[in-house]
Design a protein around this nucleic acid. Structure first.
Lengths: 215, 215, 215, 215
DNA sequence: TATGAATGAGATTTCATTCAT
DNA sequence: TATGAATGAAATCTCATTCAT
């Protein structure tokens, strides 16, 4: 009632980058990097083509911004989960860790993973950022968790300390499956990850009185 | 009769399609699908642009042909390995199966995986072909192997029968690592896969007299 | 009455148009007309883009204003120099006239000349203004001077009355040289102009008692 | 009659660059560098936009090619004229040299001069080329001619040896006039140049028996 | 008066595909 | 069969100008 005429311009600078990045993620997810038209992102974001270039100097910058924006919180979540847990190792793996993987497979990070795999080799600086801020932070957090378990006598020492990748490998499978095949053939990734965690617990966790202090 | 597709008595440079597909794989590997120029493939193959279109009607057809050409022998190798092995399960896993994964990570299949992840969603028919001829054949072979082990009393029944993906998940990690990070930070994927197999053997293989007949 | 355009009692930063025009000249000089961004002029002038459009309705208007602003005083200077001189012709040519040309070559007029040559054909009204207010006033002043000399018996009558352009042609050469080549190869334009004047004096000035009244 | 259907493609590679450069010159002449659209050049040349980029990688390359193409023959003409003349100096100046300047003012070089003045500062390599291949060759040829005259006792030594620019300065005036004002106000550049040459001959050429050997 | 976020028309450039030879 | 000159649709990016505040 107050605004009877729709203004041709809307001024709301603070929201714009967010708004554009969200739209961009969706377009990139659907069409990949090269397949995405800046014009379509603009339309999806409800802004003009020109405005895109006010906030992101090139399509490539936009892409990188999207990747960073999506992955950063995911990694924060992982590190935080690992750092603040005081649960016994088996409960931790079956609980928060499993949940993290299950959510990861479903989250927007999945499509960003696809984008990284597809475009990473063309963007060395983005790949470097990914290594520093996603991969190494992620693996670092996992390794920290495992080593704590080993020190506490909860976990068998061994390969998993050297290659924490093995712990999340099935999440990667899950994501790739979702990307490529989910439309064709369902896979219960939640269950698969649960079974994976069971196997890991069986293999890694030392039986016996585990109620010792964990901290 | 053995050679039905190649017209035997026409004069033309033999294996032109082969030649082109090989060049195309290298270009796709380096630049991705969209980043690859048909002209560059032609140059690399040593033929004219026009001739490409004699053998492959579009760039997309060429892409699909490349994917099929690379993956088919890989799958044949896996199925054959699994089918013809008469080794006890632990020896099989530590031997031919580990070797297969290690080679897989290094092979041209790696770059095709990248291409599939990047482009799959845009080519449903290719994805369908991949599911039928790569994924399901691959998982089928693995499942077959596992079930034989279970029947023989060599393997514990359980999750791995349902989700043979868990067995090759680290190979996927290895491939993705090679694609994205190998230039930045080395990972000894061979060793990682070996450790993975050890974990799997510990978890899955039933101890005790294993020298019973396998077949 | 003296000051009709500037409203005397309104509060605003004085000389905004001046300020903008000065900034514009520098930008136009560096990047040419098309290569100059209105936003950059605004920034250089320390005002907002929007404000520019309060004082100059379009980029083109701004351009024309700059041209006029720079050239007008130069022409005033020339006419005034010529009109007020009471020197014998040889002294005048070697003195004030030479100085004028030497300064001209160095002045901001040089870059405006470049702009006129580049953009003139696209702006007929500007070109017309230039003809009326620069070219014809300039040539007029020179011709007046020459004719006075002829009447006084100081100068040989002839071509130079018809084509006073010949008298300042080397200044044009000097300006073009400064515009294009000075960064690559120095030319002592001062000396060149001095030599030109010497040649002119030799050719044009009638020897003999020249101390007669001049005026 | 032979070709009843107009083919959509015409294959005539050898002509193309020429054809495009000619069209480009006309467009650049009319609209300047920035004001010229590649599409319009293409249309004028009767080829597709895409083909432009087959022969000239960028608009800038096209521009440079045009400049070089137009100026090179002009300079060849000047050097050749100067080198091969066996005329006495006054006849040479009043004859071939005057003719050269008169033609120069009318030729396509005129518009290229405009382009150079306008765009030179933005293209240092083109400017360097211009200096090496136009300016210095041109001035060199003039200086050579003058020094020959001085050695022969035909010309007074002096400023003109140091600054041969003074000899062609009026041609520059003529060209600039043609560019900017000819549509508004005629100037008989031919006559102006003729008068200029007369002045130069009067000033520079030594009277007396000039029938001495010239060579 | 003053700002600068927002617009949108238009420019250059790329490249898969066609087709005259 | 073989070539590569030629096409044209489309994509990215720029920037003068407008207008809500």
């Amino acid at each position: 009632m107050a605004d009877t005429t729709t203004p041709r311009f809307e001024r709301r600078k603070p929201d714009r980058p967010e708004q554009i990045a969200d739209a961009a993620l969706l377009e990139f997810a659907e069409h990949g990097y090269a397949g995405t038209r800046v014009a379509d992102v603009a339309q999806r974001a409800g802004v003009s083509k020109g405005l895109m270039y006010v906030y992101f100097r090139t399509k490539e910058e936009l892409f990188k911004a999207v990747v960073r924006k999506v992955l950063t919180p995911k990694l924060d979540q992982l590190t935080s989960t690992v750092r603040h847990s005081t649960l016994p190792m088996d409960q931790f793996l079956r609980g928060p860790f499993l949940t993290f993987m299950q959510e990861l497979v479903r989250s927007r990070a999945r499509v960003v993973l696809r984008l990284m795999i597809a475009e990473g080799p063309k963007h060395p600086d983005l790949t470097q950022w990914y290594m520093d801020n996603v991969l190494n932070r992620g693996l670092g957090a996992l390794r920290e968790m495992i080593q704590r378990g080993v020190r506490n006598g909860e976990l068998r020492p061994g390969a998993i300390e050297t290659y924490p990748q093995l712990l999340i490998a099935p999440a990667l499978i899950g994501m790739v499956w979702m990307i490529l095949f989910q439309r064709h053939e369902k896979l219960d990734t939640d269950h698969m990850l649960q079974e994976h965690v069971e196997l890991m617990v069986q293999t890694l966790v030392i039986d016996g009185p585990r109620q010792q202090v964990l901290l």
